[in-house]
Amino acid sequence: MSIQWFPGHMAKAKRLLLEQLRWVDAVIELGDARLPESSLNPMLRELLADKPKLLVLNKSDLADEAWTERWLERLGQEGPAFPVSATSGSGVGRIVPRLESLMRGKQEQLAARGVRARPIRAMVVGIPNIGKSSLINQLTGGARAKTGNKPGVTRGNQWIRINPRVELLDTPGLLWPKFDDPEAGRKLAAVGSIKDEVVDSEELALWLIKWLEEHYPSALERYRRGPGEITLEDIGRARGCLVQGGRFDTLKAAQIFFKEFRAGTLGKVTMDRF
């Protein structure tokens, strides 16, 4: 199964990002702790050039802690990187101090030239459904950015004052035109960063079942009824997806499976490995 998705509003988001980068001092890139590599947009590296950047791995509460530590060690070699959970607020308090520390040198240079101090302007970037709005809501202490559980809910851009020293620019999620690694596309679809409407949910669910069987077999025990591979019928039976004629609604079973996987009901999972 090959997944490619770059709708018109994504191309527009790229143009807006390029336009607005000149107005910001730094970038906060939000990744998914379950996909520390696949969720980072390679196009952003080219677009950001030499802008100071913080890498924040969100949804760390859903990721395998051992793998999160390994990834932070690797990613931290390129710049500041740390985990957070925008849902619980864990780790979010570190962002503003780290951002101010990142920008301290530049601010001191400006002050030495007699330039009047102004708030640090930072842009929050990341792929769809990564939790940007939830993160900003945590930083501001209130629901000031529209959120949703589907990719693409944040349609426009908006400036948000965090404190007198920091302003954030929220941006729509940005995917890239082509996945060089087809598996990266499947992983992104599995965690919900690609709209379910553009993928074959049953085919993707079968792929995810096989992946979990290999890496986290205990995650599937709730569906297992005997030896052998778990099927969508097994999941449908476990979740009461019975339809007329004694058959099971495998599409509904796949949808329930993804809902439980994404919510962490099946356990903590990290899908990117090295």
Rank of each mutant, 00 (worst) to 15 (best):
I127K: 06
A117H: 11
A205M: 10
G89N: 14
G105P: 04
R144D: 14
R121W: 09
A145M: 09
Q107A: 08
A219N: 12
V198A: 11
A205N: 10
K210I: 10
P119W: 01
W211R: 15
L72M: 11
I209H: 00
P164A: 08
F82N: 10
E167V: 11
L208M: 12
G192S: 06
D196P: 04
L139N: 13
K268A: 06
L18N: 11
I209Q: 00
G226S: 01
F274C: 00
L18I: 07
M10V: 00
D272H: 04
V243Y: 01
E78F: 04
Q158N: 13
K146N: 06
N157H: 14
I256W: 05
F179Q: 06
A26C: 07
F274L: 11
E214I: 09
V84M: 11
P151A: 00
M1W: 08
G126W: 05
P36D: 05
A263V: 00
T154E: 07
N163M: 12
P164W: 02
I127W: 02
D32Y: 04
N129C: 06
A190T: 14
L169R: 11
L54G: 07
L99D: 10
K268D: 05
S60T: 01
W5P: 06
P177L: 05
K53D: 00
N157L: 12
M10A: 05
R225I: 14
R116W: 05
V92N: 15
G142K: 15
Q244D: 08
K210R: 15
L174F: 01
R94W: 02
L242K: 09
P52G: 02
G228R: 09
P227Q: 04
A33R: 01
A49I: 04
L135I: 09
R116N: 09
D234S: 05
S2R: 14
W211N: 13
I120H: 13
G148H: 04
G240L: 12
G114F: 01
N129Y: 02
G245Y: 06
G185M: 06
A205P: 08
L212W: 04
M1Y: 09
L204S: 07
R15L: 12
G142I: 13
G156H: 15
I95F: 07
A145H: 05
A117D: 15
L54A: 06
E29L: 00
E260I: 02
V269G: 12
D196Y: 03
S201P: 00
F257Q: 13
V27T: 02
K252A: 14
Q20P: 03
A189G: 13
L175D: 02
V199M: 10
A11E: 13
E65R: 04
M43I: 03
P97A: 08
I256D: 09
P80F: 06
E29A: 00
L62K: 02
R34Y: 02
W159N: 08
P7T: 12
L110E: 15
T68C: 11
K178I: 09
T87S: 08
L242R: 10
L21G: 00
L55T: 00
L169Y: 10
Y223L: 10
E229S: 09
A190K: 12
I235R: 06
E73N: 11
F6Y: 15
R273T: 07
M103S: 03
A189F: 14
I160G: 11
L175S: 03
W71L: 04
R161S: 15
